[in-house]
Protein backbone atom coordinates (compact mmCIF):
# COMPACT_ATOMS: atom_id res chain seq x y z
CA UNK A 1 0.00 0.00 0.00
CA UNK A 2 1.11 3.55 -0.52
CA UNK A 3 3.57 4.63 2.10
CA UNK A 4 2.32 7.94 3.48
CA UNK A 5 5.86 8.97 4.23
CA UNK A 6 6.97 8.38 0.65
CA UNK A 7 4.25 10.75 -0.49
CA UNK A 8 5.55 13.55 1.65
CA UNK A 9 6.50 16.17 -0.90
CA UNK A 10 8.02 18.72 1.45
CA UNK A 11 11.45 17.94 0.04
CA UNK A 12 10.39 19.39 -3.30
CA UNK A 13 9.68 22.87 -1.95
CA UNK A 14 13.18 24.05 -2.81
CA UNK A 15 12.90 23.28 -6.53
CA UNK A 16 12.89 26.63 -8.36
CA UNK A 17 9.94 25.75 -10.61
CA UNK A 18 7.63 25.15 -7.65
CA UNK A 19 8.23 28.61 -6.22
CA UNK A 20 5.58 31.23 -6.80
CA UNK A 21 6.24 34.17 -9.09
CA UNK A 22 9.32 34.21 -11.29
CA UNK A 23 11.54 31.30 -10.30
CA UNK A 24 15.29 31.81 -10.23
CA UNK A 25 17.81 29.04 -10.78
CA UNK A 26 20.98 30.98 -9.99
CA UNK A 27 22.04 32.64 -6.74
CA UNK A 28 22.37 35.84 -8.74
CA UNK A 29 19.06 36.36 -10.52
CA UNK A 30 20.71 38.63 -13.08
CA UNK A 31 22.03 35.45 -14.70
CA UNK A 32 18.46 34.12 -14.95
CA UNK A 33 17.38 37.34 -16.63
CA UNK A 34 20.32 37.36 -19.03
CA UNK A 35 19.51 33.83 -20.19
CA UNK A 36 15.87 34.74 -20.73
CA UNK A 37 16.89 37.90 -22.59
CA UNK A 38 19.16 35.84 -24.86
CA UNK A 39 16.33 33.46 -25.68
CA UNK A 40 13.89 36.28 -26.37
CA UNK A 41 16.42 37.98 -28.66
CA UNK A 42 16.87 34.71 -30.54
CA UNK A 43 13.13 34.30 -30.96
CA UNK A 44 12.66 37.87 -32.19
CA UNK A 45 15.62 37.52 -34.56
CA UNK A 46 13.94 34.47 -36.01
CA UNK A 47 10.63 36.34 -36.37
CA UNK A 48 12.42 38.99 -38.44
CA UNK A 49 14.23 36.42 -40.60
CA UNK A 50 10.96 34.56 -41.16
CA UNK A 51 9.20 37.77 -42.17
CA UNK A 52 11.99 38.83 -44.50
CA UNK A 53 11.90 35.48 -46.27
CA UNK A 54 8.13 35.80 -46.57
CA UNK A 55 8.45 39.34 -48.00
CA UNK A 56 11.02 38.14 -50.51
CA UNK A 57 8.80 35.30 -51.63
CA UNK A 58 5.74 37.53 -52.09
CA UNK A 59 7.71 40.19 -53.96
CA UNK A 60 9.43 37.73 -56.24
CA UNK A 61 6.18 36.03 -57.16
CA UNK A 62 3.58 38.83 -57.11
CA UNK A 63 5.65 42.00 -57.28
CA UNK A 64 3.31 43.67 -54.81
CA UNK A 65 3.04 43.50 -51.06
CA UNK A 66 0.11 43.84 -48.70
CA UNK A 67 0.37 44.01 -44.95
CA UNK A 68 -2.49 41.57 -44.51
CA UNK A 69 -0.82 38.90 -46.62
CA UNK A 70 2.29 39.32 -44.47
CA UNK A 71 0.47 39.38 -41.15
CA UNK A 72 -2.07 36.65 -41.65
CA UNK A 73 -0.89 34.82 -44.76
CA UNK A 74 1.46 31.85 -44.82
CA UNK A 75 4.58 31.22 -46.89
CA UNK A 76 4.51 28.51 -49.53
CA UNK A 77 5.07 24.93 -48.44
CA UNK A 78 8.48 24.97 -50.11
CA UNK A 79 9.60 28.11 -48.29
CA UNK A 80 8.19 26.77 -45.02
CA UNK A 81 10.28 23.66 -45.45
CA UNK A 82 13.41 25.76 -46.04
CA UNK A 83 12.61 27.95 -43.03
CA UNK A 84 12.11 24.92 -40.79
CA UNK A 85 15.51 23.61 -41.79
CA UNK A 86 17.26 26.97 -41.37
CA UNK A 87 15.64 27.60 -37.97
CA UNK A 88 16.78 24.26 -36.58
CA UNK A 89 20.33 24.95 -37.77
CA UNK A 90 20.39 28.43 -36.26
CA UNK A 91 19.09 27.20 -32.92
CA UNK A 92 21.60 24.39 -32.81
CA UNK A 93 24.42 26.76 -33.76
CA UNK A 94 23.53 29.43 -31.20
CA UNK A 95 22.30 27.41 -28.24
CA UNK A 96 23.88 24.03 -28.89
CA UNK A 97 27.27 25.53 -27.96
CA UNK A 98 26.08 25.68 -24.34
CA UNK A 99 26.51 21.92 -24.23
CA UNK A 100 29.12 21.34 -26.92
CA UNK A 101 31.84 20.91 -24.29
CA UNK A 102 29.76 18.10 -22.81
CA UNK A 103 29.07 16.33 -26.11
CA UNK A 104 26.23 18.59 -27.25
CA UNK A 105 26.86 17.81 -30.88
CA UNK A 106 25.91 14.21 -30.23
CA UNK A 107 22.56 14.98 -28.61
CA UNK A 108 20.23 12.11 -29.40
CA UNK A 109 18.12 12.77 -32.44
CA UNK A 110 15.31 10.35 -31.62
CA UNK A 111 12.19 11.66 -29.95
CA UNK A 112 12.65 12.30 -26.27
CA UNK A 113 9.02 11.51 -25.54
Amino acid sequence: MTDKKSNDLEDLGNLPGFKRGNPTYFENEVIDHLISITLELGAELWVVKDRLAHVEEILSEENKLSLSSLNTGKPSALLQEQLDKERKQIIKRIYGRLYSKYGGESAEEKSAI
Binding site: L39, G42, A43, E44, W46, V47, D50, R51, H54, L70, N71, T72, G73, K74, P75, L83, D84, R87, K88, I91, K92, Y95, G96, Y99, Y102, G103, G104, S106, A107, E108, E109, K110, S111, A112, I113
Partner: peptide, 25 residues
Protein backbone atom coordinates in the same frame (compact mmCIF):
# COMPACT_ATOMS: atom_id res chain seq x y z
CA UNK B 1 -0.64 35.96 -37.09
CA UNK B 2 2.39 34.77 -39.01
CA UNK B 3 4.54 36.57 -36.46
CA UNK B 4 3.16 34.44 -33.61
CA UNK B 5 3.56 31.28 -35.65
CA UNK B 6 7.22 32.08 -36.39
CA UNK B 7 7.87 32.86 -32.72
CA UNK B 8 6.31 29.58 -31.63
CA UNK B 9 8.25 27.64 -34.25
CA UNK B 10 11.41 29.01 -32.70
CA UNK B 11 10.31 28.09 -29.17
CA UNK B 12 9.31 24.58 -30.27
CA UNK B 13 12.65 23.91 -31.93
CA UNK B 14 14.63 25.38 -29.04
CA UNK B 15 12.65 23.17 -26.66
CA UNK B 16 13.31 20.21 -28.91
CA UNK B 17 17.04 20.84 -28.61
CA UNK B 18 16.63 20.54 -24.83
CA UNK B 19 14.47 17.42 -25.08
CA UNK B 20 17.00 15.72 -27.30
CA UNK B 21 19.78 16.63 -24.88
CA UNK B 22 17.88 15.09 -21.97
CA UNK B 23 19.67 11.74 -22.07
CA UNK B 24 22.82 12.81 -23.86
CA UNK B 25 24.70 15.05 -23.15
Amino acid sequence: SRRDEAYMNFVEDARNLLLHAQQKP
